[in-house]
């Protein structure tokens, strides 16, 4: 049984079909990439999984149990964490408090007391290389650090599945490589990862399997080498005229 099963899921806004009859699975331990041109419905897909948007048709299952219809906080309690494309740090808190937010509301821990929370927070801070900034107000972090914070918060939730919504966007090459290394590290700790990415290099380097969305539909899936050669995918990205290197164009 797959960890996450998305079955014939559709969602429209007004007359626009943002996600159209999409089905896929994510297996335990995988890093799966979800790519597609702007407006393909990737972020909508992520919002559907985390429950911020309601599914019109179809269903989503996690560890065999239905997620569809649950509130986002209940979905979080089941072990799904996510980051946001536009980072959402809790202003007015320190970096440590931000990460603590992840640990505080876990269903397997109750309350603030005890060293359990502290240990989890320390570990997440260290893992994402934020330990030296722990007591700083979150407003002082730069973009790269904020992206790390998003990940640290999510990791403090002790997730089984981590949804990464364009964590690489806006970072420079060096920062991207560093973050890719970290994502692999998280995966090595047993966290299954679904990653939406515009940065082709990152998604191709990270995932063994890639899903491609276009106009709300899933048009292809497979290993990165195969996907980049798929005429449908090339067409979706570049239009019909040109067939040059996908890497260069999309970055």
């Amino acid at each position: 049984m797959a960890l996450l099963e998305v079955k014939n899921v559709s969602r429209s806004f007004g007359g626009v079909q943002a996600v159209n009859n999409v089905s896929f699975e994510v297996n335990e331990g995988e890093i799966v990439g979800l790519i597609g041109p702007n407006g393909a419905g990737k972020t909508t897909m992520m919002n559907l999984i985390s429950g911020l948007i309601k599914v019109n048709e179809g269903e989503i299952r996690f560890q065999g149990a239905r997620l569809t219809g649950l509130k986002p906080h209940a979905i979080a309690h089941k072990g799904i964490a996510r980051t946001f494309q536009i980072v959402k740090p809790f202003q007015g808190m320190t970096v440590r408090e931000n990460v603590m937010m992840g640990a505080l509301f876990r269903s397997d821990l109750r309350g603030l007391k005890g060293s359990a929370v502290k240990n989890i927070v320390d570990e997440a801070l260290e893992l994402l290389e934020l330990d030296r900034r722990a007591e700083a107000p979150v407003e002082e972090l730069n973009l790269a650090q904020r992206k790390h914070l998003e990940l640290a918060r999510a990791m403090a939730m002790g997730p089984k599945l981590l949804l990464l919504d364009e964590v690489m966007a806006g970072l420079n090459l060096k920062e991207i490589e560093r973050l890719m290394e970290l994502v692999r590290k998280l995966n090595a700790r047993g966290v299954t990862i679904l990653v939406i990415e515009h940065v082709m290099k990152a998604v191709m380097g990270l995932s063994k399997r890639v899903l491609v969305m276009h106009h709300g539909s899933l048009i292809a899936q497979g290993p990165p080498e195969v996907i980049t050669q798929d005429p449908k995918v090339i067409e979706a990205y570049l239009g019909k005229r040109r067939h040059k290197g996908l890497h260069k164009e999309a970055r």
């Binding site: 985390s50 429950g51 911020l52 509130k71 986002p72 906080h73 979905i75 979080a76 309690h77 964490a81 996510r82 946001f84 959402k88 740090p89 809790f90 202003q91 007015g92 808190m93 408090e97 603590m100 937010m101 992840g102 505080l104 509301f105 876990r106 269903s107 603030l112 918060r153 939730m157």
Partner: peptide
Amino acid sequence: YGLRAIKTEPEAAEVMGV
């Protein structure tokens, strides 16, 4: 902590289990 999180980022708070 939940309230302070809701104050600035209600969506993030919600997906973190609040």
